[in-house]
C-alpha cells in the first residue's frame, strides 16, 4: 500500500533528480562560474598581434570580457562572431573586451580572414595553435561535442557560462554580459 510518507519521499527524490538534470543541462561545456581563467596562448589572425602567438586572457587583465570558443567554422559560427562583435562595439567604452577562438586550428585561418574582411570586425579572431588537441581545450574544459562556449569573465574569473547556442539565442550572452557589467 502506498503511504503518504512514501509519496513524500518520492517527491523529494524527484526534486533532487530534476535539480541535477537542470544543472547538467545548464553547463554543457567550459569552466563554470567562479573558476579562475588561466593564460592560454592562441594564434592571432586579425588582432593587433596577427601572425603571432598571444594570450588574450592576459591582455584583457581584469577588464570585463567574453572569451568565445567555437568548435569549427560554419555559417552559424560566423553569425555568432558578428553578434559578439556587435556586443563589443556597444560596450567598448565600458572597457569591455571580446575574443573569438576557433578550436579547429590553422585550417580556419583563411575563413577568419574572409569573415573579418566582409564583416569589418573589431574583435580579434584567433585559432588554437595545435587544433582540438591543444592543451587550452582541456584547461578550459571544452566539450568536443559542443559547437560553442561563451565565458563571461571579469577580474580573471568566470561569472557566467553560456554554451551550445544558435545565433538566435545570442541574447543569453548579451544578458550575462550586461549582468556582469552592471555588477561592477
Amino acid at each position: 500500500m502506498i503511504t503518504l510518507r512514501f509519496i513524500r519521499e518520492l517527491r523529494l527524490v524527484g526534486f533532487v533528480l530534476l535539480g541535477a538534470a537542470s544543472l547538467l543541462g545548464q553547463i554543457r561545456s567550459g569552466l563554470p562560474a567562479g573558476s579562475p581563467t588561466e593564460s592560454i596562448p592562441v594564434s592571432d589572425v586579425t588582432g593587433p598581434y596577427k601572425g603571432e602567438r598571444v594570450c588574450y586572457v592576459c591582455e584583457f587583465e581584469a577588464d570585463p570580457n567574453v572569451l568565445a570558443f567555437f568548435r569549427d567554422t560554419s555559417e552559424e559560427t560566423g553569425k555568432l562572431i558578428v553578434e559578439l562583435n556587435r556586443l563589443y562595439v556597444k560596450n567598448k567604452a565600458r572597457n569591455f573586451k571580446a575574443v573569438a577562438m576557433i578550436i579547429a586550428g590553422s585550417d580556419s585561418k583563411k575563413w577568419l580572414e574572409n569573415l573579418n574582411r566582409t564583416e569589418r570586425l573589431e574583435i580579434p579572431l584567433t585559432f588554437f595553435t595545435k587544433g582540438p588537441k591543444d592543451v587550452a581545450a582541456r584547461i578550459y574544459q571544452l566539450n568536443p561535442d559542443v559547437q560553442n562556449t561563451f565565458l563571461v569573465t571579469v577580474n580573471r574569473t568566470v561569472t557566467d557560462n553560456v554554451s551550445d547556442i544558435g545565433s538566435g539565442e545570442f541574447g543569453k550572452v548579451i544578458d550575462a554580459a550586461e549582468k556582469m557589467l552592471a555588477g561592477r
Partner: peptide
Amino acid sequence: ATLIWEEEHIPGAVSFPYRP
C-alpha cells in the same frame, strides 16, 4: 596552467599557476 607546464617549460621551472 599546470597542464601547459607539463607539456613544456624552462628546465627546472616549478609550476605555480597565476591567480589574481
